[in-house]
């Protein structure tokens, strides 16, 4: 039976950590997560790996495989040349818990602060109607499995380990899913600009490249949100219009503006 050479990061906070080699027998169709499970069952029962579904639906098993953020449950051993070592390391943008497991709690904090879905109080649900093509974009964003690989690859987040000024691609996708929901009335523009730091994204599209759900994060979520922020805060005509109507540029639109583009 052919063998794969896995080179797995082992370590805990406070220790420097090291790469440990494990030879794993390969069966057809095996993925990196299968190899890690084999290591747990035969060589290192305390190897820490976070995973749940092993079907690319829960987004728990993200790691850096040969330096690239990937879901280990979706990365097949046959993608690598025979004899080529497969290095598996934890996502670098987050603090280490142990081995391949990192502390992603920061993401949950960021998520909690996003203004939630807010349907119109005066539109009874019985009257809600929308066409399939009207929601396809929102459904694209709602495919996100929260693997945080996009957060991991984002150089803004990588470069700011603490005091992060930027919510990151995952939460811009979530905000976009709310903003473009046909029944949402909340206004998240100031949140995106200030707390969210949307201006920090300089559209390098690394997030889109690593997304296992193939969400066009930059083109479909981030750029339209950037346009909303720019229209509100930086478009001289819109600013003049708002002044004319007696509203400062820092306040949200009134109800008659609706959920303008």
């Amino acid at each position: 039976m052919p063998e794969a050479q896995l080179r797995v990061f082992r370590g805990s906070p406070g220790s420097s950590g090291r790469l440990v080699d494990y030879d794993v027998p390969v069966e057809e169709g095996m993925v990196v997560l299968d190899a890690l499970h084999w290591v747990q069952a035969h060589l290192a029962p305390d190897l820490a790996v976070r995973w749940n579904c092993k079907a690319a639906k829960c987004g728990s098993c993200g790691a850096e495989v040969n330096g690239r953020p990937r879901l280990t449950c979706k990365t097949r051993l046959s993608d690598f040349a025979e004899g080529e070592p497969i290095t598996v390391e934890p996502m670098r943008a987050f603090p280490l818990v142990k081995d391949l497991v990192v502390d992603v709690s920061w993401n949950y904090e960021v998520n909690r602060r996003i203004p939630p879905f807010q349907p119109p109080p005066d539109r009874p649900q019985e009257t809600w109607r929308w066409q399939q093509e009207d929601i396809e974009r929102v459904q694209e964003f709602r495919k996100c499995i929260e693997c945080f690989l996009c957060q991991d690859v984002c150089h803004v987040l990588r470069n700011h380990e603490t005091e992060r000024p930027f919510m990151g691609p995952r939460f811009l996708v979530r905000a976009a899913g709310l903003e473009m929901h046909p029944m949402d009335t909340a206004d998240r523009t100031s949140h995106l600009k200030d707390e969210g730091g949307i201006g920090f994204c300089n559209i390098t599209k690394c997030c889109t490249e690593v997304c296992p759900e193939h969400i066009k994060i930059t083109d479909n979520a981030i750029i339209p949100l950037k346009e909303r922020v720019a229209d509100r805060y930086y478009d001289p005509i819109q600013i003049a219009w708002r002044k004319l109507r007696g509203r400062g540029s820092e306040t949200g639109p009134a109800a008659d503006d609706g959920n303008a583009p």
Binding site: Q40, P45, D46, A48, V49, V97, K98, D99, V101
Partner: peptide, 14 residues
């Protein structure tokens, strides 16, 4: 019996 420590030890979970 289990080897390793308590933090994030899947063998122990099992």
């Amino acid at each position: 019996g289990i080897s390793g420590g308590r933090p994030y030890n899947p063998g122990w979970d099992l």
